[in-house]
């Protein structure tokens, strides 16, 4: 089933019963966990990526929420339909296992970054990963859609908005990055990479 979503729409919520399995066709989505005063963005899937249904095998509530960042289109398979496929097609179980494994690996990396890298290298890492996945060549470097507010960048690296603001300012002063309202230009990917790979703690 294919559906269109406006920006800012929830596909599903943390705590929901096991959700449908979605394939993002166009647009962007953020996956995040929210507690009382905190939000942690866990991933920013790209078109072609799968999301959802991770808790279907245990029947537990969904471990995170998914909200569109832009207008988006996604196909989905309801939990019941997915369960039928899992029960009847052993090959499909393997496919689903692989999807869950990929998400798992993403979270392992995130946990490592949050545990050992400081805010500066985490923000550099977010930019580096996105430049490598989404970047387009540009006269002065690599450019990609900004997509996130300062607050959302803060939610990605696990810090406060002011700290992200200061860190971006520093990157701009050092001529590594140029930020506009809609795009991010990476002027010096290699220096950014060095900063991203530092383990401060």
């Amino acid at each position: 089933m294919l559906a269109d979503y406006a920006a800012g729409v929830d596909l599903y919520h943390q705590g929901d019963p096991p959700t449908a399995l979605y394939v993002l066709q166009t647009g962007r989505v953020k996956l995040y966990r929210q507690s009382r005063e905190n939000c942690q963005i866990l991933a920013l899937p790209l078109p072609g990526d799968f999301l959802g249904a991770e808790s279907l095998p245990t029947g537990a509530p969904s471990p995170y929420s998914a909200t569109t960042l832009t207008a988006a289109a996604a196909a989905h398979l309801t939990p019941d339909a997915l369960q039928v496929l899992l029960d009847e097609l052993p090959d499909f179980q393997e496919v689903f296992l692989k999807l869950i494994t990929n998400r798992l690996k993403q979270f392992v990396t995130l946990v490592h970054d949050l545990a050992f890298r400081d805010v500066t290298s985490r923000l550099a890492m977010v930019l580096l990963v996105r430049a490598e996945a989404e970047g387009q060549p540009h006269d002065e470097g690599i450019v990609f859609e900004r997509l996130l507010s300062q607050q959302e960048f803060a939610d990605m690296v696990g810090t406060a908005r002011e700290v992200v603001y200061r860190t971006f300012k520093k990157f701009e002063d050092d001529d590594l990055v140029h930020l506009t309202r809609t795009s991010i230009l990476i002027r010096d990917l290699e220096t950014l990479r060095t900063i991203a790979l530092q383990e401060a703690r």
């Binding site: 966990r33 942690q40 866990l42 991770e54 537990a60 869950i100 798992l104 979270f107 690296v157």
Partner: peptide, 17 residues
Amino acid sequence: YSQRLEHLARVSEVLGS
């Protein structure tokens, strides 16, 4: 795997906060 995923999502949130 599903259990582990839930756990890691929780750890990420706590470390980030």
